[in-house]
Amino acid sequence: MTMDCSGGSWVVEDRVSRGQEQVVQRICARVAGPVAGAGVHVASLPLGGVEVWLDSPRHRWRFHHRMARELRLAGWHTETGSDRLVLLGWSAVCLSHRARMLGAALTGRLADFDRTAFTAVMIATRLCHAGFPIEELPAEVEARCGEALRWPARLADLDGLERRSSLEPLRLRLAQVAGLEAKVLRRCGEHLALASKVARTVAGGAGPVRARVPGSRMSPAGAGLTERMVCVSVPNSVPDAAVRAGTAK
């Protein structure tokens, strides 16, 4: 069954796409958090779509609406009820919104390497002063910067999802979104590589070197700011020679 609603703004496919249940489970568990996330359940509906419900009734309405917002950002039409959340299929409106959000990320936050460099320096310096293990510093800084960017987790949630539609307009929208996601993923990789480099510099070169993302290019402005900030923010215990070695081109 394929159902059109409001001029084809969303559709219910005759069967759930491969990997859809697992993806919905990951998205909802991440939104619900470590406590409520363990009680998230997902199941396919007989005529297409997916239903989601929680073990605990506490704050159920709030969690349902948070999950629905994140699922709509992924491109699905959702309906929230008193006891469960229903995902009904791809939405042309939601997919268009996702494309706009991805484009805005590329021209906005993900175009600002200076901000990532500044955040990485501040996090690394604070952790160093708090006695965080130096060898674990690059990975920790990279993880925290990834959380700040938000898109790495959102894209990781979609791993293994087969996105398809029986309608040509939706297939074109899905293809457009997939292309933008690939660009966002590469840009996020560049930001995380920069964060790791800054953390190693602050730590005096300690920690493994992060693999460079294929096709990535470091922003000259971002790299220059990184070097300037590292020079003024590196803890006093780090030898000057190590700082120069870490910031050398």
Rank of each mutant, 00 (worst) to 15 (best):
P133S: 06
A139L: 10
W76H: 10
G49M: 04
L47K: 07
H64A: 09
H64C: 14
L137N: 00
S56K: 09
R109K: 11
L85E: 12
E51T: 12
R144E: 12
E136P: 00
A36N: 14
C28A: 12
G48I: 04
F118G: 03
R30K: 00
C28D: 09
L110G: 01
R69Q: 13
T116L: 00
D112I: 03
A32E: 08
V35C: 08
L45Y: 01
R144S: 11
R84E: 09
S96T: 15
R58S: 10
H97Y: 08
R62L: 12
S44P: 02
D114Q: 13
F63G: 01
L95A: 14
G37N: 03
G146R: 00
V141E: 01
M101R: 15
G89K: 05
A99E: 13
R26Y: 06
A92T: 15
R69V: 09
P133I: 14
A38P: 00
T80A: 11
R58L: 09
A143W: 09
C145S: 06
R144H: 07
L127R: 10
D83G: 10
E136N: 05
G39T: 04
G37C: 11
V86F: 05
A38M: 14
E51Q: 13
V121S: 14
G131R: 09
G103W: 10
R109D: 14
E136T: 12
A38V: 13
S82N: 15
A29Y: 14
R30I: 04
V42E: 06
A105C: 10
D112R: 09
V93Y: 03
G37Y: 04
A117Y: 00
R115A: 15
L73Q: 08
F63N: 08
F132G: 02
H64L: 05
G146S: 08
A92M: 11
R115S: 11
E136I: 01
T119W: 13
L137P: 12
L54H: 11
R30V: 08
H59D: 13
G146P: 00
P34V: 06
A117W: 00
R144L: 13
H59P: 05
C145Q: 05
W53E: 13
A111E: 03
S44F: 00
S91L: 10
A139N: 10
S56T: 07
C94P: 01
H129T: 14
F63Q: 10
S82T: 13
T78N: 08
F132V: 08
R84K: 11
H41V: 11
G146L: 02
S44T: 01
T78E: 03
M101A: 08
P138E: 05
P57M: 05
D55H: 12
H97W: 09
L110T: 04
A29V: 09
A104D: 15
L47P: 03
L102A: 07
S91P: 06
E142K: 09
S91H: 08
R98N: 14
A105I: 01
A124P: 12
